[in-house]
């Protein structure tokens, strides 16, 4: 017997992991908002986490066949998170000749991190995380209901 009702939780679980990763990246960005030195040289570069749909799991249970539900679409897809460096936002340049990392003109290059943007993204990610927890709990409650149908 294929325990397909347990697989259903996997999509929500992958989304939780993806948002967790995004929140980690935001924490890292905020922590390094003033970091002007990195092993690669230059100031810290902001990390961004982008999402993409994962591969369709083998034997997608929603596909055609004689199941309880019909669907012409591919089976459920998980969420995959990928960390990319933000190369489009320019570094913040501040004139501070006394700084050890100032260049010949007295300009210090600070990371391209805007704390306000990061905080907004953090709130959004936390909300989305909660929404996925709610979906997970709803699925669980409904499965419990199904198990209780035959009970006296």
């Amino acid at each position: 017997m294929r325990v397909d009702y347990l697989d259903r939780l996997e999509v929500s679980a992958s989304a939780l992991a993806a948002y967790r990763q995004r929140m980690n990246a935001i924490a890292e960005n905020l922590a390094n908002a003033q970091t002007t030195r990195t092993p690669e040289g230059g100031p810290y570069r902001r990390q961004e986490v982008v999402f993409e749909a994962g591969a369709v799991p083998a034997a997608g249970d929603a596909g055609g066949g004689r199941g309880a539900v019909e669907s012409a679409l591919s089976g459920p897809r998980s969420v995959r998170a990928r960390v990319v460096a933000d190369t489009t936002t320019p570094f913040t340049e501040i004139y501070d000749p006394g700084h050890p990392d100032a260049d010949g003109n007295g300009i210090v290059r600070y990371p391209n991190v805007n704390p306000v943007t990061e905080m907004v993204n953090l709130v959004l990610a936390a909300r989305a995380y909660e929404a996925n927890v709610a979906a997970l709990q709803a699925e669980k409650r409904m499965q419990e209901l199904s198990l209780g149908i035959g009970r006296a």
């Binding site: 992958s14 749909a53 897809r77 979906a135 997970l136």
Partner: peptide, 8 residues
């Protein structure tokens, strides 16, 4: 649940 997971 899938729609929520893939909201972004």
């Amino acid at each position: 649940a899938e729609n929520i997971a893939h909201a972004e």
